[in-house]
Amino acid sequence: MDFDFSPIVDNWGFLAQGLLITIELSVATIVAATLVGIALGLGRVYGPGWLRVPLTFYVDSMRAIPVLVVLVWTFFAFPLVTGITLPPFWAALAALTLHISAFVSEILRAGLNSIRPGQVRAARALGMSGAQIVRKILFPQAVVRMLPAYGSLLSVTIKDTAIASVIAVPDLMRQSETIAAQNYAPIEVFTTAMLAYFLILFPVTRAVEAFYRRVAHLGRS
């Protein structure tokens, strides 16, 4: 077996562009999905009954459908229904946000529900309103408690951006495929890409874990 890593050296700029897209798509998805997910989660836990039913249905549906299917549908089928064609990056951002936000809302819901009732009782005894209790007492503790699961979700999100290569988003995955095919060096290129993903993901998950260990006591009532 002879390995030839020269295609990677020769095309490092092309691959680095892909890496940049991967990072951009990851960050944009995380920000958007977190905001949407918080709204979904709060709506599910504290919203009126007529809102909870469709939100629960939406969240459970997203838990049931593969992200690949959401991506492909958003990119190929959505324009046929609406006449609006999204460029690959924006279609990927929309699809990933639709999908990941459902999981953010689940994590937030679990975090909120895990806080023991005595905390609400204490806040009520002080005379706080429902909105004040959520904002000042429950939400901050839930955020701390959801960190481990949120860290896993960050990792899942970054990995899921690689699936956007299927709709031709020029991310690290897609650029690697191109270089691998052009130079017929799939093993070298894909191995390098795997290492690159690992080097992004491993520190991210470790950093979240370390941060959680430092702040865990703030969520322990």
Binding site: I163, M173, P186
Partner: peptide, 22 residues
């Protein structure tokens, strides 16, 4: 554990496709 949890599955699938036969 750390490696296979921290690489995208789709990439792993491609990688297996090319690497396993060799």
């Amino acid at each position: 554990v750390e490696f296979f949890r921290n690489v995208p599955l789709i990439l792993l699938v491609y990688w297996a496709f090319y690497v396993l036969p060799i």
